[in-house]
Simulated assay, not measured.
Amino acid sequence: MEKLLAEFQDATKAGLQVIAGALERFSAGVAEEIRNARPRSIAADPDDENLSLDVALFDSAPIVAVPKHAKFAPLDDIGHRFLATAEGIFVEVRRPWLHVIQLLTKLPENAPRPPYGYIMPKIELAFGRLGVAIPFVQGFAEEARSALPNEHAAWIVWDADTRSLEYVPLRISNATPGAIAFERPALAPHQSLAIDLHSHGHGDAFFSSTDDADDAGEVKIAGVLGGLGDGNKPSVVFRLCVLGMTIPLKVPVQAIFKPAELA
């Protein structure tokens, strides 16, 4: 009898575990259906045959209201969204190495104010500060000198597994004193481009119209080194590229080149 009772209890326990698992999967499925059915704030006729296209666009880059009373919850997933605030519209971007919130457009002083909260702009790097990458940039400067009179290029990527920056040489397909072309390397899933470097050889460092076109739509730090030849005055420029918006970054030329070379 005791053996039969034990077998019954084991069978009952196993059955309950199966039922619990099924209920858990059912609950998750219901929650997912509710999330998918949640209406988007799109000013369109719900019966319009093209609405699904707008829904897809909205989901790829949604706009959300910043709470006035509750605590703001930052974007967790890789991607971007727009933030509606009492001050104006901000963009929030998340990459494995970056979290940035920046004002896109400010409401006129006497404009109607949405009943939303305020948000502070921020630029947060997973590696702490740009100075961490200076040794890599110094090494790149030496490579760029060796490539004179032609331009040179390299990447610095963020490794999410090791949580560190890594220098990635590029395969240059064509280089001249005024232009450079290279093959974009295939990065592993745990790697992402953080800093895109190129040089201007003997010329000054600046962002050209070609650079502007290349950087449009990307999220990265771009850096240019110039004045690399003997007797030239070295120069550097850096900026954060955020989906077409650029934010200048201050990097002292003395941090990359020895002071004696500036004389």
Rank of each mutant, 00 (worst) to 15 (best):
H198N: 07
D212S: 13
S235H: 02
V132T: 10
T210R: 11
S209M: 12
A144M: 07
S199E: 02
L53E: 14
I101M: 05
G131V: 00
W155A: 00
K13H: 15
L98F: 07
L228V: 05
S208H: 10
G203I: 00
H152Q: 15
N174T: 10
F207K: 07
I134G: 08
P112Y: 11
H202R: 13
G139W: 01
R35T: 12
D45M: 01
A56T: 11
P149C: 08
L165K: 03
I256H: 05
P169G: 08
H200D: 02
D161Y: 15
E32H: 08
H190I: 12
G227K: 06
V55R: 15
S208D: 08
R94P: 05
L51E: 07
M120D: 14
N232R: 08
V18H: 14
Y167C: 06
A37S: 12
E183M: 11
I119F: 04
M1E: 11
I134M: 10
P96Q: 04
K106G: 05
K258A: 14
L130E: 03
G201F: 01
T162P: 01
D211Y: 03
L57P: 09
V91I: 15
I63S: 06
I42M: 15
A22Y: 07
P96G: 03
G29V: 01
A216S: 12
